[in-house]
């Protein structure tokens, strides 16, 4: 076991896969000489050279398309979005070609690409650098979407994503790169399609992902002190949802709160709530509640920004309100 930072775990996962398979390469802005804007690719250029750690011009749609074309003929590119928000400029290539091309070709081409990078609300980065894109991409058929949250799962999920033959959108959170955790020295993988039951409990299910995992765990401390026993599930896989794990939990606790940074309208939480209602409505003792990011561009002002996403106190209050329905 060794203590690693979040970005080091991603670096190590990438390095291991690049050493293992010469078809794996990194494409993106400042991934090479500069080492990546969050240091994930630091040193890889020296080890693997210009073509395998390819610094691109600033042209997201075209270099994403180029990666898709390379993937169609057998390479396994990992695209780094310097900021995931920039990939809005690559939306056409991601939606039409990464997402749909295998299908429209009648299954003739595989598109094994990973598109990874930082997203989410940071600290006063302004609206364009504070985007929650999960909802935007969730509607694209043919994509797998995962959101990392820990040093351990960052490495294991990245390795699995690189080995997966499908296009994987791989979200990291801009405020989690300096997390520290002890992780195994030996090689390991984390499955792309499995939720993580972070804490087992019986009173209520809190479904979350990404950085909100930590806000939920903070709230849990208060809740436990008040004799409440919540179950916390980190979704990890945003598409497809691990409904097996979610439904099992609902059947146990009968109450669900979804905590997400994503925007409320048409966000991941909306999809989760609708799926729960479709699949296990009869097991619910209360309406499913979403504590979600607010439907506004993220403002620069720090005090305003803080009100956009859920905080532990909001989670505590929502859980207590819902459990009050029992009496």
């Amino acid at each position: 076991m060794a203590v690693k930072l979040f970005y080091e775990a991603l670096h190590d996962g990438l390095e291991e896969e690049m050493q293992r398979n010469k078809d794996v390469l990194v494409i993106g802005e400042d991934v090479g000489h500069y080492g990546g804007s969050y240091k994930v690719t630091k040193g890889l250029h020296e080890q693997f050279g210009d073509l395998r750690v390819l610094d691109t011009p600033i042209c997201e749609n075209s270099f994403t398309g180029m990666a898709i074309g390379a993937a169609m003929v057998g390479l396994r590119p990992v695209i780094e979005g310097m900021n995931m928000g920039f990939l809005l400029l690559a939306f056409n290539q991601i939606a039409n070609n990464a997402g749909m091309l295998r299908y429209t070709s009648g299954g003739q081409f595989k598109i094994p690409i990973v598109i990874r990078g930082p997203g989410g609300v940071g600290r006063q980065l302004g609206a364009e650098h504070s985007q929650r894109l999960e909802g935007y991409f969730n509607n694209v058929p043919g994509l797998k979407i995962v959101h990392t949250s820990t040093v351990y799962n960052a490495k294991g999920l990245l390795k699995s994503a690189i080995r997966d033959d499908n296009p994987v959108l791989f979200f990291e959170h801009v405020l989690l790169y300096n997390l520290k955790e002890e992780i195994p020295d030996e090689e390991y993988y984390v499955p792309l399609d499995k939720a993580d039951v972070v804490r087992s409990g019986k009173d209520i299910t809190i479904l979350t992902y990404g950085r909100m995992r930590y806000h939920c765990l903070d709230a849990v401390k208060t809740l436990v002190a008040n004799d409440i026993d919540p179950e916390v599930i980190d979704l990890i896989s945003l598409k497809p949802l691990d409904m097996e794990t979610i439904v099992a939990s609902v059947k146990k606790t009968h109450r669900v709160i979804i905590v997400e940074e994503d925007m409320k309208s048409g966000g991941i939480g909306a999809e989760v709530a609708a799926s729960i209602i479709e699949q296990c409505f009869d097991y619910l003792d209360a309406p499913v509640i979403r504590l979600a990011g607010k439907d506004v561009p993220v403002p620069y002002n720090g005090r305003m920004e803080e009100t956009v996403i859920p905080y532990p106190k909001d989670i505590v209050r929502a859980v207590e309100d819902m459990l009050a329905l029992r009496v």
């Binding site: 390469l25 075209s62 994403t64 398309g65 074309g69 056409n92």
Partner: peptide, 18 residues
């Protein structure tokens, strides 16, 4: 869609060089 095949062809050319 207009233009979206060009990057794909570029990717195949890149793979040849790679």
């Amino acid at each position: 869609f207009i233009g979206e095949g060009i990057p794909i062809a570029l990717g195949a050319a890149f793979a040849a060089k790679y």
